[in-house]
């Protein structure tokens, strides 16, 4: 008898609560725009935050409310932008894929006795938190001689949701196949070394040193000294030297790779010559 009462009470309670929930879902029904779900489906759902909104859901809502432009999603690329545009009933520009580039070539190589053969010179041993921001705040602007170079403590590695960055010989390297161009690494780099570039446009200046040539040379064997050889040889006149650093104007550059061949420091990388 007891068991029947118990089952009846519990079943009855379950039924009542079920009915209350069903009623509540009718009473408190909130209409949502069906386009929101569609937009959410287009987005990759990685929540990388590269668009500047709190995850893919936040971006979809912002697009729906007309607050954000279409095509901010780097990891979705062109396909995603076009799909979102067709949902919203507008035309989107073609979005080209970009990948992150670490503008530093200072990979450290040592000989048997521990002397530096090439790369950035380490002036002090840093023993604090293994974090680039912490390291860059140490007096004398960090353990490297070069005030601009990659510290190599891997803050960007931790920030990358796609596991695309690796520290090789003390310098961060981006795996271009994995990189989706969300640039969350660029946001955390205290030296602002990471910039977006087109993946096939691999004539890139892999240095960010604005110091004078002599100072750069003292700190690193592969730093840009602003010698201007690349500027002279460029047939498209795409290279300029600003504050002791070569800069390529990609609207003019045709990827010929001549600059990479003349650079005395071998820091202009050309994908036709060598893979980064």
């Amino acid at each position: 008898m007891d068991i029947i009462i118990a089952v009846a009470i519990l079943g009855g309670l379950g039924l009542i609560f079920g009915l209350v929930l069903a009623a509540a879902s009718k009473v408190f029904y909130v209409e949502t725009d069906p386009r929101l779900d569609q937009l959410n489906e287009c987005l990759p759902g990685a929540n990388c935050g590269g668009c500047g909104y709190a995850g893919c859901g936040g971006y979809a809502e912002a697009v729906l409310n007309g607050e954000a432009p279409i095509g901010r999603c780097a990891s979705g690329g062109n396909e995603c932008a076009q799909a979102m545009a067709s949902i919203m009933g507008v035309k989107a520009e073609v979005v080209t894929r970009k990948v992150a580039l670490v503008r530093c070539s200072g990979e450290k190589h040592y000989d048997k006795d521990g002397n530096l053969t090439s790369g950035a010179r380490v002036k002090a041993k840093y023993e604090g938190f293994k974090d680039c921001l912490s390291a860059s705040k140490v007096g004398g602007s960090g353990p490297l001689s070069c005030k601009f170079g990659c510290l190599g403590f891997g803050t960007c590695v931790k920030a990358c949701k796609y596991n695309a960055i690796k520290i090789v010989n003390g310098v961060a390297k981006v795996n271009e196949d994995r990189c989706v161009g969300c640039m969350s690494c660029a946001a955390v780099c205290p030296r602002k070394l990471i910039v977006p570039v087109e993946p096939k446009r691999n004539v890139v200046i892999a240095c960010a040193s604005l110091a004078k040539g002599a100072v750069t040379t003292r700190g690193c064997t592969v730093g840009c000294i602003g010698c201007g050889l690349c500027k002279k040889i460029c047939p498209q006149e795409a290279i300029t030297i600003e504050r002791n650093l070569a800069i390529i104007d990609y609207t003019k550059c045709d990827n010929c790779g001549l600059c990479a061949t003349v650079c005395p420091k071998k820091l202009i990388k050309d994908s036709n010559v060598e893979k980064l």
Partner: peptide, 10 residues
């Protein structure tokens, strides 16, 4: 569950 629905609306 009810509270969640109520909050979403109200």
């Amino acid at each position: 569950q009810v509270v969640e629905m109520f909050l979403k609306k109200a």
